[in-house]
């Protein structure tokens, strides 16, 4: 048998993976190795595969992902810092047949927007809340976040987070899981292919639950911030596995009764 060449394989019929058509060609503004990009891709894939482009409204936060609307080809609203769940509440109530998601970082969702987060989940708004937790304020240059680990250094905790002064990191997923309004709460990651595939399954469940009007779906993605953590992307992922995952364990926290 003749040896098969590289060019023999690269044919449309042999395609195994390409970026979702819902990802635009704009170069993402994120730093090299940042989990935001991966989270965007997998979200776009799910929106594409579930045929949701025509009925999706996304709400972007203030933070690194403020410009998310440049990257995924669906209608977007850009919220004030922390307020995405309030916007989403109104959008979903006014247009119940749309697919509505928010996308927020830890400063946005777990500090300035805590009230909106809690009450949106408590009302059980039929939306998907995507929470990217990298334990730091990335866009403003690496300040301490509500989710910064104990002892972790940041530009506003230069000697490490002192929990006696600054409190302990807040576990938002565990908090909202206690509220009757949430139907599905899970914590996932995007640093490995396996992790991304699990996140994709979680996103598909969230789509299903939103279609079934079962309440708020809350998906936390524990992610990295190579620039803010002052590490290479590969080092940051290793550090995340060693330090973030023990504090923020991956897996389902709340699943709906079948």
């Amino acid at each position: 048998m003749a040896e098969i060449t590289f060019n023999d394989i690269i044919k449309p019929e042999n395609l195994a993976y390409k970026k979702s058509r819902l990802m635009t060609d704009n170069i993402l503004s994120y730093c090299p190795g940042c989990g935001h990009g991966t989270a965007h891709q997998v979200l776009a894939e799910v929106l594409e595969e579930e045929n949701l482009q025509e009925r999706t409204i996304g709400i972007t936060p203030v933070g690194c992902s403020v410009l998310m609307y440049n990257y995924i080809d669906v209608d977007f609203q850009e919220a004030a810092h922390g307020r995405a769940p309030a916007l989403a509440t109104a959008v979903k109530r006014l247009m119940p047949d749309k697919f509505v998601f928010t996308y927020q970082g830890d400063g946005d969702l777990a500090a300035i927007g805590t009230a909106e987060t809690i009450h949106t989940c408590n009302r059980g708004e039929n939306i998907l809340m995507l929470f990217i937790n990298n334990g730091i304020y990335g866009m403003t240059g690496g300040q301490m976040a509500p989710t910064t680990l104990p002892g972790m250094k940041s530009s506003t905790s230069p000697y490490g987070r002192d929990v006696s002064m600054m409190g302990s990191p807040i576990k938002m997923a565990d908090i909202v899981a206690m509220l009757p309004g949430t139907c599905y709460v899970t914590r996932q990651s995007v640093n490995t292919a396996g992790g991304v595939r699990k996140l994709k399954r979680a996103l598909k469940k969230a789509v299903q639950y939103q279609n079934e009007k079962r309440g708020t779906c809350f998906i936390e993605v524990v992610s990295n911030c190579p620039s803010g953590w002052k590490m290479t992307p590969v080092e940051s992922n290793k550090w995340m596995e060693e330090h973030m995952f023990p504090f923020y364990p991956l897996g389902d926290i709340k699943v709906p009764a079948e």
Binding site: M1, I4, D8, L15, A16, M23, T38, A193
Partner: peptide, 21 residues
Amino acid sequence: GCSNCAVVCPDGCITVYKVKI
């Protein structure tokens, strides 16, 4: 052709093809 590289790529740079031989 496992696509793991493309799946984790944050910038959507990688396209993967595969054939059974």
